[in-house]
């Protein structure tokens, strides 16, 4: 359950011209929702993502994640929130280079202090959920294709059972077909595991895969609507990475 109320983020020091990157945004996202936050570049969606991802704190307003107020935490407390409540999928540089798939996925568990024996089992389960082929578990990250990398990243985002999976332009570096596969993976996780997913994108086609679309422009919500007919990713290709 995500509840943000009247969030603003102002850049620039006193005196200089201030930039209101996020200007009074409020919304609630319930557990199990698949939401796309859409807007052109410069709309403030990245800043919003940083706040939602506990990478940054808002200038004003409140942010409750699972009932916990995240808007005024210290760096170390934010790290704890990221560690235990949020899973990230980025556009690029998602995986550590020269590191096996399994180890990449176990990384959040390592920082969370999970025992070594338990990590491997959980990482394997997450990889299976993300539809990653078992025979590639010990491949190094630089031996993977773009689509495979995103699936490993999704598995890593899943591995600590987060309240929220935050995907920042996850298909931005992929061709349409592979992007489709990645979006299909998100849909499958949302449908089958009940994962809460927030997808940040500037592409309307990508946003159409979510069940709810929040439009942002100039730091404000211009539209927040339910998407009654989400585009169904072609599932026939989903399992073929």
């Amino acid at each position: 359950m995500i509840e943000i109320k009247n969030i603003t983020k102002v850049y620039g020091s006193a005196g200089a011209e201030k930039v209101r990157a996020v200007d009074g945004i409020s919304f609630t996202i319930k557990d199990g929702e698949f939401v796309a936050i859409m807007g052109p570049s410069g709309s403030g969606k990245s800043t919003l993502m940083h706040i939602l991802g506990a990478l940054d704190t808002p200038t004003s307003g409140t942010y409750h994640l699972d009932g916990k107020d995240v808007s005024s935490l210290t760096d170390e407390e934010l790290a704890e929130i990221r560690r235990n409540h949020i899973g990230f999928v980025f556009q690029s540089f998602n995986l550590l280079p020269r590191t096996t798939v399994l180890r990449n996925v176990s990384l959040p568990l390592m920082y969370a202090g999970v025992k070594v024996e338990e990590r491997e089992a959980r990482a394997k389960a997450a990889l299976v959920s993300a539809g990653f082929n078992e025979s590639h578990f010990l491949h190094l990250s630089n031996q993977l294709s773009g689509g495979q990398i995103q699936r490993v990243a999704i598995a890593r985002a899943l591995v600590n059972n987060p309240s929220l999976i935050l995907a920042d332009e996850p298909t931005g570096n992929l061709d349409t077909r592979t992007g489709e596969i990645v979006l299909g993976t998100f849909q499958k996780l949302n449908r089958e595991n009940g994962s809460t997913i927030i997808l940040i994108t500037h592409e309307p086609d990508v946003a159409m895969h979510a069940n709810r679309i929040i439009h942002i422009r100039d730091g404000k919500i211009v539209e927040d609507k339910i998407n009654p007919n989400p585009t169904k990713a072609r599932t026939d290709t989903v399992d073929k990475i």
Binding site: E76, L96, P97, L107, P108
Partner: peptide, 16 residues
């Protein structure tokens, strides 16, 4: 730098 950013995003503490 990017690796450090990634590690922090997935929950590494400063001390880690």
């Amino acid at each position: 730098t990017r690796e450090i950013g990634l590690r922090k995003a997935i929950g590494a503490k400063k001390s880690d």
